[in-house]
Amino acid sequence: MRAFAYARAATPSDAIGADGRLIAGGTNLLDLMKLEIETPDRLIDVNHIGLDEIAPDGDGNGDGLRIGAMVRNADLAADDRVRRDWPLLSRALLAGASGQIRNRATTGGNLMQRTRCPYFYDLAAACNKRDPGTGCDALAGRNRNHAILGASDHCIATYPGDMAVALAALDAVVEIEGAAGTRRVPVAAFHRLPGDTPQRDTVLEPGELIRAVTLPAPTGGRQVYRKVRDRRSYAFALVSVAADVTVADGAITRAALALGGVAHRPWRDPDADALLVGRAPDGAAFAAVADAILRGARGHGDNDFKIPLARRTLIAALAEATGTDVRTAA
């Protein structure tokens, strides 16, 4: 670890525009610093700035929820309102990391967590994300946990988290404050695709602070989070699917799907979701939407299997969300 200066912010405004790197739970940043993959000169500790409340939110009726950036993952997952109205979020959080990590990890930090590409973690490897212009050793290397959608020749890494996948399906919005004021970015647009600048994970600008994440009122749909991984807990997703689906009178009236583990950001495809609307929940409908979502999917060797896996996981999640017998769904 490199030596660094440390400052403690007392209020959000201390953290905005401050010269240095924010540290919240530290569960990602400290690991990266110990390995010298991240080498900030100065840390700004945001653990004492407040922003740790979960409160009703929304235009007038307060049916939405406002989650402070410093709310811990464990507290958010256990919140009664979340468990009742946005169980998808609770399940996604509980499917991530371990109990100890969730006790420390924050909402803001979780959104900002970096990829788990092993070459990103290896200072001896070529990695455009860590060291722009050096190349990408994952392309011809071991890429089991890499992207099948939206990748570029510069980087095939994934955003590894679970919480943001649920938030994307729930149409949550990130509230960001910078020197120029506050802006609101949908979670689905918060993470970037790698393009030729994979060093930038998100649209957050230097000096900006994530203040909160807001959830619109629940849709009334059935919410499902299905995470497939190499062991049953304490592993990142190979593929995960967040689904929020409403069925009325035998037909789907609304569907929002998001995929995790497959791209540089939680993957949403509202056009594909729309294919479900008006259709009866059955295997043909599920296959059609899965194929539409995955039409541009491309594997890189180790991760080729993720394409059929994503297709099948989508179908499994849709079957569960609509109460469809899996035997007719598959």
């Binding site: 497939v228 049953r232 896996l309």
Partner: peptide, 9 residues
């Protein structure tokens, strides 16, 4: 074994 995803429990 999940007939859909191949997960083994």
């Amino acid at each position: 074994v999940s007939a859909l995803t191949g997960e083994v429990r």
